[in-house]
């Protein structure tokens, strides 16, 4: 339960006293985090995974490509905390480095989806005539494809690679962002302050960018966070199918695929990368749910 007064929306912060407003906004946010333990846990997981990806060379106990020939398919031990795979590569180090691909592909894909989808959605909501129909019908067609199937089809055209996996997953999520931005765009465009801005002679572009867009910000941030969890899952599935980063780059999905051939002998190769995926996805999900509770007015009192 979060009451309205305790939350200062980014959009309602006036331009008059920015530093004071930002401080009280920060304080409000901090209070929210403390209140919402699940979201805090999500944030901690997300930060931990990001730190893992950034500091991989420092914290990884081994080189992820190094083959310890004498210790192939070795069970977890002191030298190899999570065991090794069939080539003698350290599972823990590969999982730590694998965070890089997951976050990179997930992040860039959601970035593409946001940068393309949000302007399209705002435009559709603001214009709300033929352009709206044209954009949204096109989005309907993209949504008509089952997610992974569309990503696979796009990768069939572009060929498997990290960059193409980002593009493919990005395209899949464009309609999600277009739809998310359209609804508030439509509602805001009909409010009095937009009317007022138009009356003083502001151009359409200015109204859209300076007045309508900022008011859709909170809902977009929530969508970005939850979409990251889905995008990371999608990347894992694609790299499991061998359609993301090429070997020997460590990715969680590929590690699972490589490990399943000898998982009866070495269950750790098939277990640990999956745990990494599940925890990361859980982190983004918890954070997204928490942000939604905090930022989305529809959930604020529930």
């Amino acid at each position: 339960m979060i009451s309205r007064d305790e939350k200062v929306d980014v959009a309602t912060v006036g331009p008059l006293n920015r530093t004071a407003a930002r401080q009280s906004w920060l304080r409000g946010q901090l209070r929210l985090w403390r209140r919402n333990k699940m979201a805090t846990m999500g944030l901690l997981i997300v930060l931990a995974v990001i730190a893992m990806a950034l500091l991989a060379p420092v914290i990884a106990p081994h080189d992820p490509y190094e083959r310890d020939i004498r210790n192939r398919i070795a069970p977890p031990s002191r030298t190899h905390l999570l065991g090794t795979d069939n080539l003698g590569r350290d599972t823990l180090s590969r999982i730590i480095y694998g965070a890089r691909i997951s976050l990179l592909v997930g992040g860039v894909a959601v970035g593409i989806a946001t940068l393309v989808g949000v302007p399209l959605g705002l435009l559709a909501g603001y214009n709300a005539r033929r352009l709206d129909t044209a954009i949204m019908r096109f989005m309907d067609a993209v949504i008509a494809f089952p997610e992974i199937v569309l990503a696979i089809a796009i990768l069939a055209i572009l060929g498997p690679s990290v960059l193409n996996a980002m593009i493919a997953i990005g395209i899949v999520y464009i309609p999600v962002f277009a739809r998310t931005a359209r609804a508030p765009g439509l509602a805001e465009s009909r409010k009095e302050y937009v009317e007022a801005a138009r009356a003083v002679g502001a151009s359409n572009a200015r109204i859209l960018l300076r007045h309508v867009a900022p008011n859709t910000l909170s809902i977009i941030i929530v969508r970005i966070t939850t979409s990251l969890s889905y995008a990371i899952l999608a990347e894992a599935a694609l790299s499991f199918l061998g359609l993301s980063a090429p070997p020997p780059t460590p990715t969680w999905g590929r590690m699972l695929n490589e490990g399943r051939g000898f998982m009866e002998l070495a269950p750790w190769v098939a277990v640990f990368p999956g745990i990494a995926i599940a925890i990361t996805v859980l982190g983004f999900n918890l954070l997204g749910d928490g942000l939604r509770d905090a930022l989305d007015p529809r959930y604020r009192n529930s």
């Binding site: 899952l233 999905g253 999956g274 995926i277």
Partner: peptide
Amino acid sequence: ALVGLCIPSFWLGLL
């Protein structure tokens, strides 16, 4: 349910 949403189906299949 939340945990169920986060587990990739192919990993669950392997387990």
